[in-house]
Amino acid sequence: MEYYDHHETPLLLAAANGIIEIVQQIVHVYPQAVDYVTVNQRNVLHVAIAHRQKQVFKWIQNHRLIMTRLVTRIDALGFTALHHVGITKFYPGGYHGPALQLQHELKWYERVQSQIPPLYNMHHNKMKWTARDFFYKTLEKMLDDAKQWLKKTSESCSVVAVLVATVVFAAAYTVPGGLNTKTGSPVLLTEPIYIVFTVMDIIALATALTSVVLFLSILTSSFKMEEFLHTLPMKLSIGFQLLFFSVTSTTMAFALTIVLTMKSEEMKWTMSLLYMATFFPVTMFIIIQLPLYVELVKNIWSYRSNVFKFLPRGFLALFWKLPSKLLRYRKFV
């Protein structure tokens, strides 16, 4: 459905383009300007929601009197403020991958819905659609694109993770320097670098296998619209981070192997070139996948406040009470 409209007033034009300073100044000088509407009876809140102008929406949200005044208005097509979330003509884009774009749209729907009176959630427009029905209808193509992109990404990452796990698993049995024929222990066991090599190898194997599990859980999911809000993007974000750590740990383990097996003062420059060549794949991986990597890091960071919700309450209570019990025990001792 196309969203044809004209913005007759400077306030509506500023709201559509996200110029928050002009919006604030106009409302400050002439508060009655918030009642101005377009030819289709759309107010400044409708325009801000349809154009995805978060700053304008947040400013209206912080002014409860204005929000209360505008949130119950319905335009000429029977659209509530929540219906305008389904208008995707002005979607700004800028997100790496259809799955993250869909997640952004779902978050925007939830944010607007939190400000709408519950009664208006069931309001039907002139096409007999509720806001949720209209939203799902307009995002059908984005949902299909998100499914295909997420499946292909998970399959590709799973293949890489399995290859990394295979390499580091084999490296655990073909240790650098070989084994002592009498004791069966590694020859370089007393070297401090060998301990670091072992730790890197274990980290690479653990992170690679864990990422495989997460990517397989994505491939076996039902790919419902609601799952793209939290579940699937979180699995993708964590799985991609673990895959990145496994590749980095594998590269570091390879570099440590070179250090252990090629110790020589005469090969100093050769060693330096080998170190640079070792970290070249990781550097290229970061450069090529940087946009996606940044988006996924932001995605994980957005869930930081929900981490403790996944833990049992009894465990959290024990965790908080344990320090006080230790302090009491020390006093008695």
Results as ranks from 00 to 15, higher is better:
1 M>V: 12
2 E>S: 12
10 P>N: 05
12 L>I: 02
14 A>E: 05
15 A>N: 08
17 N>S: 07
17 N>H: 09
28 H>W: 03
35 D>Q: 04
36 Y>I: 00
37 V>K: 06
37 V>D: 01
38 T>R: 01
42 R>C: 05
42 R>E: 14
43 N>S: 14
47 V>D: 00
51 H>V: 03
62 N>Y: 04
75 D>M: 00
76 A>K: 14
81 A>Q: 05
85 V>G: 09
90 F>G: 07
103 Q>C: 12
125 N>W: 13
130 T>F: 01
130 T>C: 08
132 R>T: 05
135 F>D: 05
141 K>R: 09
144 D>S: 11
149 W>E: 12
151 K>G: 05
159 V>D: 12
163 L>P: 15
171 A>S: 14
171 A>V: 08
173 Y>M: 15
185 S>G: 02
186 P>H: 04
186 P>K: 02
189 L>R: 00
191 E>N: 14
198 T>D: 01
208 A>N: 01
211 S>F: 06
212 V>A: 03
212 V>T: 05
216 L>G: 07
218 I>N: 04
221 S>C: 11
225 M>Q: 09
226 E>K: 11
227 E>A: 12
237 S>C: 13
245 F>L: 09
249 S>W: 01
252 M>Q: 03
253 A>I: 09
258 I>W: 08
263 K>P: 14
263 K>L: 13
266 E>A: 11
272 S>M: 10
274 L>C: 07
276 M>Q: 05
283 T>L: 05
285 F>L: 10
289 Q>V: 08
295 E>C: 14
316 L>C: 04
330 R>D: 12
